[in-house]
Design a protein around this nucleic acid. Sequence first.
DNA 1: AAGAACTCTGTTTTT
DNA 2: CAGAGTTCTT
Length: 645
Amino acid sequence: MELNEGQRKAAEFAGGHALVLAGAGTGKTSTIVARVAHLVQSGADARRLLLLTFTRRAAREMKYRLKSQIGAAADAIAAGTFHNFCLSYLRRWPDLFQCPELTIIDRDDQLQLMKLARATTIGTDAAFPKPADLVNYSSYARNTNRGIKTYLVEFTDLDPDTVAQVQAVLNNYTDRKRECRYLDYDDILHFFARRLHGDAVVRQKLQSRYDHLLVDEMQDTNPLQWLILDGLRDPAKLFCVGDDAQSIYAFRGADFQNVHSFAERVPDSTTLKLNENYRSTQEILDLSNWLLNQSPLKYDKELRSARGPGIKPVLLEVDDDLEEADWVATDLMDRHNGNTPWRDHMILTRTAYASRSVEAALIENDIPYRFVGGTTLLASAHVKDLLSMLRVIDNVTDQLAWMRFLMLWPRIGEKTAAKAIDGILQLTNIADAVKLLRKRLADKQEMIAAIESVIETWQKPREAIETASKVLGKILEKRYDDWDRRLKDFALLQRLASKHESVRSFIETYTLDPITESEAQRQDADDLVTLITVHSAKGTEAPVCYLIGVAPGNYPHARSIGDDAQEEEERRVLYVAMTRAKDELIMTGTMRSHGAFVPHQNRRWTSSGSSQPYFLSNLPDHLVTTDTQMLSDDFDDEIISFRDR
DNA sequence: AAGAACTCTGTTTTT
DNA sequence: CAGAGTTCTT
Ligand SMILES: Nc1ncnc2c1ncn2[C@@H]1O[C@H](COP(=O)(O)OP(=O)(O)OP(=O)(O)O)[C@@H](O)[C@H]1O
């Protein structure tokens, strides 16, 4: 691929800090890759480059591209997410970071732990914020680098008493994490940033390790992440790329001030622009441009296709999600029969939930696919059951895992488990815990033998899982009526684990980068249709993109309605979705929003008589093809005589 | 105190 | 409509 003038300038930029601000498909990612290649080829030490991406998937993709450009030197480059990067240092220097914590907990665990914290602090009070709200407060406050009190007072309408109580619950949550030696996602960044800014020794050590910090998807970084970049730079130079029109993670604290205010925050910096879109045909960009121009905000973006004209986007009205699923599956098969590989197709969905009919249709028609962004393997109940046994061996103070593990066994319930755990939390190793259990739960020899057998195979992750699934098989089989299906996941886990050196690294990898069952199953397959949430699809592309659920209630999503900033973010979500398509964009959905879930408090349009907001409600005809004939006729319709056809 | 049987609630996006 | 919470039975 030949870089254009702007791209080449950016890739070879030799000044200080730089921000590349450019629209979708203009080659921002290609430019970062080209810059890394350029730096290495002009003699930079690959180990002193740091490439920060939004997902591990993006990091893998970039490394792959780099490898083809600069070969083995690519292996030396650190590329990963902020979370990967920070965690690697917390682990490398636990003393410097004052961070002895062991287990990374996912959102489910956070909710579970918060539930305990809420119960001990305030008991049962239905009017008090729910565990999910509390987790969100805590997370949002930290990601936007605000004190929790400030956040609660300024950004929620809780009364002062409740604010004080929420603080008390959150303190209890923090204490519990320390006691169990847990790190939640936010802790990883927070611990790192705190020492980076609070300890000059740590700061100097880190600053001296890098010459270049390259950041992709800058528009979706949050203030906490900015703090990390700001602490790491100088002498290292920042090279950040982003597009404010693609900022879709405000819900997790992303702030596109990180791109808008870049020039003020980094006084000696240069802002570069890229203008030409190399991904899509002009028709796809016309529609995308129109969508942005409808906004009250001025994004000042007008994408121009370097490829020129092509096929007009299609907007297809369907009766319901079943018809939609059916149509997509049929169209996919037609195209596949016409010799287009599966991998050329991507199905984008606003929510994982809204794609279940499509997923069912893919399965039914034996269309190979991977689902990126759905329910993940490690989140399913039986997998958590199995992992709970591994987790307690790895971290004897892992209260949530103990609770889950102990309660698997007959005649052990909440009370019995809690009592045993009280004793265990004082211990420091699994051997002592086994001793304690042997004494306290003398009639549970089978359970104790189970733990011991897994300890024996501990050094080999694959075997540890094999053993665990054997010793738990009998009790799990009784627990789940679809056991046969679930058992297959254990074989899958073994396969995944065999690529890891330790059980901890195995669990941690998939906690930080969760994958769905379909992804795990087809990890090595390369000809697959991709079913993906729009959020996960940011940064990716495909020749043919199906955008399903294009309907009121989805764009903007019903839950966002009533909050202008959130509604506007929904427009960007749709924009991101449209701009993934290279050659063809096919949108399907129902205009009648029957069956769409609409939370009651958001239904302002029903009472006021105005209609539900919808981004495509006044779409000019010429931008899309709306071909109702593309649908097979409906069984319920009147039969039209062939003489009239 | 455990487990079964019941009722109720809440249904975005992710590292 | 499923998963969590609550009440009832053993
Ligand atoms: N100079 C070029 N010549 C030909 N193709 C190019 C050029 N630059 C980029 N492309 C192609 O354009 C597509 C989009 O590039 P890339 O993914 O780097 O864009 P991006 O700006 O990161 O997009 P997004 O913001 O949507 O993530 C890719 O398929 C890439 O190969």
